[in-house]
């Protein structure tokens, strides 16, 4: 375990040296946050309730999205795809390290930085726009939310690993990543709008995919819009998806490693 902690620390150090790219990434997140915020500010200037969401609930949702983007979406695990293609993986394979754990350590370092900044940004924006946040009434809800966060974090991590592992077989990995990592992730996860404002049929289809478990369901739990039975069910389904993708990642790794060309050098 200690070696991965050292990797975590050295990754933090490394990310600090790429200050500009980090700042730009934060600006990008901030812009998408603000766009969403302005959109809903416009909507709620006409009405106090929309599709079953009170104003404070919707703004909590939007702020929650910004937070989860930093915690869940922001991932460095896609570097695996380029490691596979250019042989960078060799450096890890040759040493007593687990590739997944290395990626996880680096990811955690990245998340720590991102979440730190996200919280600061949210605080500032909530002050500037004078937004009131919806806080859960029971402590249990907060615990469920935290469990959910951990699951969603791993779910996104393993989805991203599975996508990256396709680099063992295909050169144009970016197409796969664009479909899953951009379209599905943005639209189907609830990162742009709460999924339940969609028509019933489409909504039900989306609930069969893993994506709503990354953003939409955790926030529903936080907003107190899920009862106990529902919370148990979504946590179990999310856990099942996470285990499925973990299993898939391991399978693909074992298969892909045999195909690995160890190019370069």
């Amino acid at each position: 375990m200690r070696k991965y902690f050292s990797l975590f620390l050295i990754s933090l150090q490394e990310y600090f040296t790429y200050r500009l790219s980090f700042v730009l990434w934060r600006v990008r997140s901030l812009v998408s946050f603000l766009v969403l915020l302005f959109f809903w500010l416009a909507v709620y200037s006409q009405t106090s309730s929309f599709a079953g969401y009170q104003k404070s609930q919707m703004f909590t949702y939007v702020i929650g999205v910004a937070f989860l983007r930093g915690l869940i979406f922001a991932t460095r695990s896609n570097v695996l795809a380029s490691w596979i293609r250019d042989g960078g993986l060799n450096i890890i394979l040759i040493r007593p390290l687990s590739v997944f754990k290395v990626l996880l350590s680096r990811d955690l370092a990245d998340k720590l930085l991102n979440v730190g900044f996200v919280i600061l940004e949210i605080f500032l924006i909530a002050k500037i726009f004078n937004l009131s946040l919806f806080l859960p009434k029971s402590f249990l809800t907060i615990v469920c939310f935290l469990i959910f966060l951990a699951l969603a974090f791993f779910l996104n991590f393993f989805i991203s690993i599975v996508i990256s592992l396709t680099a063992f077989w295909t050169d144009d990995i970016w197409a796969v990543r664009f479909l899953f990592g951009v379209i599905f992730l943005e639209l189907f996860s609830g990162a742009l709008f709460p999924i339940d404002i969609l028509p019933g049929g489409l909504k039900n289809v989306l609930f069969w995919t893993p994506f709503p478990y990354l953003v939409y369901f955790p926030l529903k739990v936080w907003l107190g819009q899920a009862n106990r039975g529902e919370i148990t069910r979504i946590i179990l389904v999310c856990a099942a998806w996470t285990i499925l993708f973990l299993w898939l990642a391991k399978r693909l790794w074992d298969k892909g490693y045999k195909e690995y060309g160890a190019y370069g050098g």
Partner: peptide, 16 residues
């Protein structure tokens, strides 16, 4: 991006 000594220290941990 880091001085070589950082890699050495990391390897100390990796190889225990």
């Amino acid at each position: 991006e880091l001085p070589a000594i950082e890699t050495f220290i990391l390897n100390k941990e990796i190889y225990e």
